[in-house]
């Protein structure tokens, strides 16, 4: 979904990798930069999150900006890793390698799970 240059900038349509017709409850897009430390940690953390708390209800896209640099521009990505929570709305931007689990959960509006 390409951003039309004439289109008025509205927060939600800003993030063009997001698609709103996905059946899953959560649509997450993770922007990483290759195999750097932060990117690897983020991938692992995200995988863990999806397997456990979001099992069966999330759709994940991983975009490597080293390979697809125009996706970064289209989505106004500045730092990596960046996780875009496209769905449910409103779009939430999470930056960092997702190590702070509590914050990630809070951002996703998940109730705290006691281990």
């Amino acid at each position: 979904m390409d951003l039309d240059p004439g289109q008025k900038d509205v927060t939600m349509t800003n993030k063009s990798e997001c698609s709103f017709d996905s059946p899953a409850q959560y649509h997450l897009v993770l922007f990483v930069a290759g195999d750097g430390l932060n990117s690897s940690i983020a991938r692992q953390n995200l995988a863990s999150l999806c397997e456990n708390e979001l099992a069966g209800r999330c759709r994940v896209n991983i975009v490597d900006v080293l390979e697809d640099f125009s996706a970064a521009a289209k989505n106004n990505i500045l730092v990596t890793p960046t996780l875009l929570v496209c769905k449910p709305e409103p779009v939430v931007t999470i930056i960092g390698n997702l190590s702070d689990r509590e914050k990630v959960r809070a951002a996703l509006n998940l109730k705290e799970v006691k281990p």
Binding site: N38, I77, I95, G96, K103, V104
Partner: peptide, 12 residues
Amino acid sequence: AVRTGDFDTRGL
């Protein structure tokens, strides 16, 4: 934006 850990400008 919510900060959840370290990040850098390699993407930029």
